[in-house]
């Protein structure tokens, strides 16, 4: 475990905390894409299939349980909670799941390290995580003003990606570890998706303005 990986995990955790804060205290999920949240729940469900069979560390197990539990509870809140679901911006959150899920699954069937159920699903989760933010970014573009918590939520998610990529580069040079090029590609695509958002995030921060993404 290096500092980049740990910082990445913590910013990932922060993004979830920010989102839960919004849902629990303000009882609002305005500006949050249910599509993206459902995709993340699917990402964690397919990636952590080995959670009870392969033990890595207590840290890993606990974090996996947190990511699984929070992602499914967020989906539950947005769909079922009597107040929270009313704030869901359904009309603007129109991106279709299967445009992302289907290509990712087909790609995982073709490009994987081993053709086994678990390996294919693990690869699928990587591909899907890379693009799962897209419905959220589309929704941000359609929103007139992005509130602080939503902006910070996406910021922390992007930061998590950035730190993970640095961690990969670090591990590449310091450990006897390598990754398949498909893993690198998925990781780079995922991080690159945030570049545009970061530009406008810092711009609004610098100018002390409300965050707004050009359509």
């Amino acid at each position: 475990m290096n500092i980049f990986r740990l910082t990445g995990d913590l910013t990932h955790l922060m993004s979830i905390i920010v989102l839960l804060l919004k849902i629990h205290t303000i009882k609002s999920c305005a500006g949050i894409s249910l599509k993206t949240q459902e995709l993340y729940a699917l990402v964690f469900a397919t990636r952590y299939l080995d959670i009870f069979t392969t033990y890595i560390s207590l840290y890993n197990t606990v974090m996996k349980l947190i990511f699984l539990g929070t992602s499914f509870s967020i989906v539950w809140y947005m769909r079922r909670h009597k107040t929270v679901r009313l704030s869901y911006d359904k009309n603007n959150d129109t991106f279709r799941h299967y445009f992302l899920v289907l290509p990712c699954f087909l790609l995982a069937l073709v490009l994987n390290n081993r053709f086994t159920v678990r390996e294919v699903l693990w690869t699928f989760s990587l591909y899907l995580e890379a693009v799962a933010i897209i419905p959220q970014l589309v929704l941000l573009q359609r929103s007139k003003n992005v509130d602080n918590l939503t902006g910070n939520y996406v910021f922390f998610l992007g930061a998590y990606r950035g730190f993970y990529l640095i961690n990969w580069i670090y591990r590449y040079f310091t450990e006897n570890h390598y990754r398949r090029w498909i893993t690198w590609m998925a990781g780079i695509v995922q991080t690159a998706l945030y570049v545009d958002f970061f530009y406008y995030y810092f711009k609004s921060w610098k100018n002390n303005e409300k965050l707004k993404l050009p359509a």
Partner: peptide
């Protein structure tokens, strides 16, 4: 060659 895509990450 053993496959190596790290699964110790989250």
């Amino acid at each position: 060659v053993e496959e190596n895509d790290t699964k110790d990450e989250l």
